[in-house]
């Protein structure tokens, strides 16, 4: 379990008092709660994956995965997202060293890579719709758009959240609260990366093969 305890007592001004009182550590609880949330999100994705696996053969006479997907673009987006996960990790390292400027830069870079990923996804979806492969074409496409789209939606929410965190860092600096916030967004971001690996494998790789 990720812990928020840090070696620098100076940063714990607000919390140290509580710990004297035998209180549970608030920020640690929040991180723990976020882990549980992530698990519930796994189940939501799991349900969409299950629906996709059940329905992917039901193409209703329309185009199937092999005809629709172009792996090249997808591989580029995969690399973008993987790279963003890496920069997000660098951001947390910078934070642990107390380097606010570096932290903000790495986070901003993560957000830019994420935005590029979303851009590519939107391009892909528009392209598919122009080819006539829409949500209503077949059960396969309904499941495809829902699964991939839900991941995209998560990334979008993550982007807004990340911008909010960067702005707060600018004004508040690296406080215990901000540390926890950066920890959670980075958890979320890595989580989305893992989900994407599954999407990439189940939807795209297994689709074209």
């Amino acid at each position: 379990m990720a812990s928020n305890h840090s070696a620098e007592p100076a940063l714990h001004a607000g919390i140290s008092q509580e710990e004297h009182h035998d209180h549970p550590n608030l920020e640690e609880m929040r991180t723990f709660g976020f882990w549980i949330y992530l698990m519930t999100d796994v189940l939501i994705f799991g349900t969409f994956f299950a629906a996709y696996i059940v329905l992917r053969g039901n193409t209703n006479g329309g185009p199937g995965p092999a005809e629709l997907f172009e792996l090249n673009g997808i591989i580029v987006s995969t690399f973008l997202l993987l790279a963003s996960s890496y920069t997000c990790g660098l951001a947390v390292l910078a934070m642990n060293k107390g380097k606010k400027q570096a932290l903000m830069v790495w986070l901003a870079l993560t957000a830019i890579l994420g935005a590029a990923f979303i851009g590519l996804e939107i391009t892909e979806f528009t392209h598919l719709v122009q080819e006539g492969a829409t949500m209503g074409t077949s059960a396969f496409l309904s499941a495809f758009y829902t699964l991939v789209g839900t991941h995209g939606l998560h990334v979008c929410i993550g982007l807004i959240w990340m911008v909010a965190v960067i702005l707060q860092l600018a004004s508040k600096g690296i406080t215990p609260v901000m540390k926890r916030k950066v920890q959670t967004i980075s958890l979320f971001w890595h989580f989305l990366d893992v989900v994407w690996i599954f999407v990439f494998t189940v939807v795209y790789l297994m689709g074209v093969s």
Partner: peptide, 12 residues
């Protein structure tokens, strides 16, 4: 009929 295309569904 809509659930045809069995060649895509090794699992099934």
């Amino acid at each position: 009929s809509a659930s045809g295309h069995h060649h895509n569904m090794p699992l099934m």
